[in-house]
Amino acid sequence: MEAFEYARPTTNEEVVKLLTGAKGGAQVLAGGTDILSLMKDGVARPARLVSLQHVKELRGITFHPGTGLRLGATATFEELLENPDVRKHYPALAQAAEGVSSPQVRNTGTVAGDLCQRPRCWYYRAGFGLLAIYNGKPLVPDGDNRYHAILGNSGPAYFVSPSSLAPILVALNAKVKLHGPQGARELPVQDFFLTPKNDQEIEHALQPGEIVTEILVPAPGDVKMAVYEVRQKEALDWPLAAAAVVLNLEGDTVKKVRVVLGHVAPVPWPSPEAEEALTGKSVSEDAAWEAGKAALSKATPLSKNVYKVQLARVAVKRAILRAAKGEA
């Protein structure tokens, strides 16, 4: 890791100033579960690290039945899991946090960090760049792409969005609040994620000097929700595919449904196909399976990840059934 400057501001304004004023680039340090490993691997080389640890306005989780949930940027996975309002009103958020099956990461990793963490693509982490170009050619299509994208992967980006929380936040129509040199702005979580088209672009919408300050999740209303992740290990492991589902039921019939897939595309992947397949049906194993198949109907797997199509179908199916059962 190269030497860097360390700053410890106490307000959002100071954070933004420190981020924009560093020669050689500055990066935010929140939980540090990602940035420190990027720095150790030489993938990120910021001249300055700006710690958010002492910025009080970035902390906390609050809930109002009318307006919904506010997650401070530096709220941890563990705080999310322990919050009774989250468990009661947004059980799927807790399920997503539970998927991070390392107490260390849950204790230090933050909700905004979960959205801002860089992709886990092993070519990117080995220093071949976000688009993994080697000798002028992309490495992923002919390389070992077992963990890469099966949707939204026409190139040049083939990585998958690593966020655990994004699929359910998108399904809940959550917004992300940003603060930067131009002041504050809000974006739907879905719009926060971008698929880079060239090596000048990255996978999210943060402008230079901008940080995530809050995540705002609307009051859920009368819905059922769930997340289902397919992970190979019980111990800490990235999902091979994940799905988040928010169901509005009228009796047994699906009035409205949101289905968002994770770990299958460079961004969280909403599936109108699955939503259409399930809307108007009563929830059953078969209906859920049909929705899963619909969700992947346009999948374009790479040479070594055809299996992920099946895993993603199953994730959708099981998320729907888990939501309908209302299991926490």
Binding site: R120, A126, Y134, K137, D142, D144, D237
Partner: peptide, 17 residues
């Protein structure tokens, strides 16, 4: 990795235990 000749999972994240 075929193209680069490098080990892709030379870490405890993707070298799964």
């Amino acid at each position: 990795d075929r193209a680069t000749g490098r080990m892709l999972n030379n870490n405890m994240e993707f070298y799964k235990l």
